[in-house]
Design a protein around this nucleic acid. Structure first.
Lengths: 218, 218
DNA sequence: TGACAATGTTCTACTTTAGTTCTTTTTCGC
DNA sequence: GCGAAAAAGAACTAAAGTAGAACATTGTCA
């Protein structure tokens, strides 16, 4: 419809006519639109006349008339669109939420479950994640309570001291502190009422490490 | 009726004219519709002209005019819109994150701080929220650890047993369990090494209740 | 009235930006 | 793999914008 300069000029003319009641001179337009020569303004105005946005009485100074200005979107719609854009930017990640890990069922096997949970992006930057709802008190001294949601990053190896989801005897998944000794893996709870489990490395494999906790009060 | 690309381009042209008042150039359309060559835009526009959705003034740059918008959207566009809608649902909220609450500074007073954190929508459905980084161990038995992020819903009243942000003597903000006795307010820590504070109701006011905990491991 | 000041018009020359056309490459369904 | 359709790219043409100067028109005022 219009080029940017034409639009700027049109709006300037329209505005000054509405504000001051009279049409600006070419000199004034020059500074307003930031052009250094009157001829530029002249051609711009000719263009606007061609496109039927303004009309001029020939050989009359300051005798322009704005015929129409382009239609605009209503403000509500613009605001709505802005909201959508920011919402998309701050979108959180959806990751699957598994309840209690069924005994005898590795994480992979229940990946089809389609309950999901939103977690802030900060928690799940790279990698594959899933979430578990904590049952029991065995990690309570680490501040992990019954009912909390544990955000787990899927991986197969862990470092000593990390809290991991460990699958024991391909049979039982559990959240514990991982510690590798010379010939054994220790799975340490964080609750003095529970005992450390000492297992042969072949009996246990890592299914993920704990990356975050989300708790909800109501 | 229209191919997805044609539709997208048509909407883009209509939008920019309505937003900026002037017609986009082919270069701008290229990036908007995600096409790498101007010729692609050219043919799309020719097609749109053929189908009488837009018109162009011959031998003019940036001189397109949208004649009409189709009533039906291409299937792909509908699917995309669906995706956006779900993204909106699962979007996370940004809430301000305050560090340690400075002694003598009520929450309102530091609301200008502009560090923010994303939290899942589930935690912050209605109401005004802010987040605090926990310092100290006074709530450790409630599973709230040093360094955790507490998601707080702003409000002025609390029920017995809720964990609240309490401002004592307009001077010191603290996260404790709220308990109203006959003539006193008790602020109860969750750590046996700390003592219950017993205060006159005039000495203390609620600045929010705890709605969630987010913890991040790394 | 005639000088002059302010404003508008036209022209030329040039740079930048935009649009068109055609050829080559890629993609995709069969 | 083949052939049609879509996309990309290069080369070219056209329009928009910039600048300066010359000139025309109008109104003002000594």
């Amino acid at each position: 419809m219009l080029t940017p300069k034409q639009y700027k000029l049109l709006m300037y003319i329209d505005n000054t006519i509405k504000e001051t009641g009279c049409c600006p001179s070419y000199e004034e337009m020059k500074t307003a639109v930031n052009i250094k020569s009157k001829s530029g303004i002249y051609t711009l105005i000719e263009e606007l006349i061609d496109r039927e946005f303004i009309r001029k009485m020939p050989h009359r100074a300051r005798a322009l008339e704005v015929l129409r200005i382009p239609k605009f979107k209503p403000r509500e719609i613009l605001e709505e669109e802005k909201k959508i854009k920011t919402a998309l930017k701050t979108a959180s990640a959806q990751i699957p939420l598994y309840g209690k890990i069924a005994a005898g069922t590795p994480i992979e096997a229940i990946a089809y479950e389609n309950e999901t949970i939103n977690v802030p992006f900060d928690l799940v930057e790279r990698g594959q994640f899933y979430a578990l709802r904590i049952e029991g008190e065995s990690m309570i001294e680490a501040g992990i309570m019954d009912g909390d949601i544990a955000v787990i990053k899927r991986c197969e190896v862990a470092e000593n001291g990390q809290i991991v989801v460990a699958l024991v005897d391909e049979n039982e998944a559990t959240l514990k502190v991982w510690q590798r000794q010379k010939d054994e893996i220790w799975l340490k709870p964080c609750n003095k009422n529970y005992e450390i489990r000492k297992l042969h490395p072949s009996q246990v494999r890592v299914q993920g490490v704990l990356r975050g906790i989300i708790r909800q009060y109501n």
